[in-house]
Nucleic acid binder design. Sequence first.
RNA 1: GCACGCGUAGCUCAGUUGGAUAGAGCGUUUGACUUCGAAUCAAAAGGUCGCAGGUUCGAGCCCUGCCGCGUGCACCA
Length: 688
Amino acid sequence: MTLIELQDRIKQRLQEAAVELFGLSVEQISSETPPKPELGDLAFPVSFELAKLIKQSTGAKVAPRVIAEQLKKKLAADEEITRIKVAGAGYLNIFFDRAKLLSGFNAVRAPTIDQASIASLPVRPKQMVEHTSINPNKAAHIGHLRNAVLGDTFVRILKNAGNAVEVQNYIDNTGVQVADVVVGFTHIEAMTLDQIKNLDRSLPEGRSFDYYCWDLYTKVGLFYRDHDPNGQPNPEKLKLRTDILHALEEGENPTADLADYVATRNVECVLDTMERLGIRYDLLARESEILHLHFWDRAFQLMKDAGVIRLETEGKNHDCWVMPFESHTGTDEHEADKIIVRSNGTVTYTGKDIAYQLWKLGHLGLDFNYKPFRKYADSHVAWVTTTEPHSEILPEVPRPNFGGGVNVYNVIDSRQSYPQEIVTRGVAALVPELGRNASVHLAYEMVALSASACAELGIELSNEDRAKPYIEMSGRKGLGVKADDLIDRLEADALREVQARHPELTAEEKAATANEIAVGALRYFLLKFTRNSVIAFDFKEALSFEGETGPYCQYAAVRANSIFRKLDSESQVAAETFIQRADGDAEIRKQVAQALDGEAGTDIWSLVTLAARFDEVVLQCAAAAEPANLAKYTFNLARAFNLFYHRHRIIGEEDRTKKAVMITAANIARRQLTLALATLGISVPERM
RNA sequence: GCACGCGUAGCUCAGUUGGAUAGAGCGUUUGACUUCGAAUCAAAAGGUCGCAGGUUCGAGCCCUGCCGCGUGCACCA
């Protein structure tokens, strides 16, 4: 028996009772947790809702408390329920049979989310999540990290909620940003492809190819402006970019080969960075294939046939194919319609994304070719799209079927809400049966720099910038905190602590532990904010291991594990069988109930109920697409455990029943805490 | 100008879809290591939930109008 099953059963009873008593059906029965455990385990404000419905249908005013009393009588005593109380202005508060549920919760085995168990499940509709999608022309910064951590955590949440999920990382290898770096290599540094390869091989440790490109990219911006940061771009130099862009779209030429090397190496570097945080992918979908395999041509035809876009024959958008967008009333300066195909015949990002989304949803009627890109340590393979047919025959790894998802989640920052809205509309117009909900823009606010972070990075601020609440990062200006730099600092800080606390560990163990702590700190830091909150990045906050942080949660789990490491196996087995028997044996159940009663008992019981709520929280997070809720829950569970840890001693406990109860409570708590952390992508170190 | 988002403790943020006495972390002050690990725990101080109306049994949450801040409104992505 899980908490969700129990809740659903009570909700159903309440719905039946509402029909029986008042002839009213309440569509959604909401439940909540009472502010204090003394008030009960579960509260239903349904009487308020019913009072309103009764007034609406009959005009009669009935006090919520009166309704609650009637519902209470109808709610026949369940065997899991010991008591029902009407409280406050009309709450229906439920008290569970603590002994019975403790036994029940203990028997529930944590679901595993490994590949084997997923493969054995019947075919389920597939959820698609696209995240990371960094332009492959430079190193990742903390803004990209927020995207990847958010996306990866959402993937874990979906999997934990029982979904099949496919993870995609979109590689814009034919866009302006890649073209810019190519301009840097060919026109500033005057390098050939072979020279770039040699340079790549000769780069020193700690200055990888993506770092090199980061610096080069900022130089290109100045190059366009003839080295005057505030100057106007030189049209002749901008033409270099346009020419390269055309060569990239064309494909199969020396410039495209050079760009392919640069983009692919940057992708490899970014995948290395993400691997440090436990973030992996199923498929790297490249823009070059969307062009060269004629995805766009097909989508273009579909859009023309459906009348979704029209060719402008006059006015500002003369010769462009545009998608009308009525809700944005156009002004003189700002055009309402969105250009999909430019007057020179090339397609915008929005158009390419519509084609890509159609493919993701299985409605384009074309497919990519695929080849393996990277094999991870656990033998999972990230595939990449390719133009070459039958590339998948080469390796021995079986290829999954990509695409064809029922829902598509696109993790993209909220500055792109407008183009994403157009993409969603376009897809919905082309495939009306899918509706507007098939393609979801999972939007989040940007990561910006706090004033103190700028000071630490040695960035000089103008007076205008100083007045702002935060400073926006800029890849073009090289303004930002690189992901690997931050992870390095976190690992160094963590290593120093581990060294001080556990000098007996080997160097490898220390390094591994430091990595686990660094990942815990970073992922939690990026997840504790809700999606629509701007993160003004601050080093002190991000580097903290105390208070509401990942390491705090890890520490609670480590403490829990250390209890079980020290506890003799005899006590563990005894507790297990004792609590198991509480379900059937009335005498034992009475003893257990006693141990869970009173102030100390309620204290222990509240830890158990909080731990049991994990499944419910995961479902909520999946529905709301908000991983921050899970982060908050995990922290609260860790906090509850630390409090329990402080107030109760297990190993020295003399009373057999009390000891068994505490062992079981601690075991449930550490199991759920470990699971919650794993869902956040955070592991629990052996020691810390 | 228009669209979207935000405004909650000194600072950074939550707030279970309209419910019980508005909560955390940091910072400040004060306590707790001979104990299953103090990366911890406890206590105190700290609030006109931007302002003004409205809806109702009930509003931090919904509606309207203001004020302030951010982002977007490209033939970039």
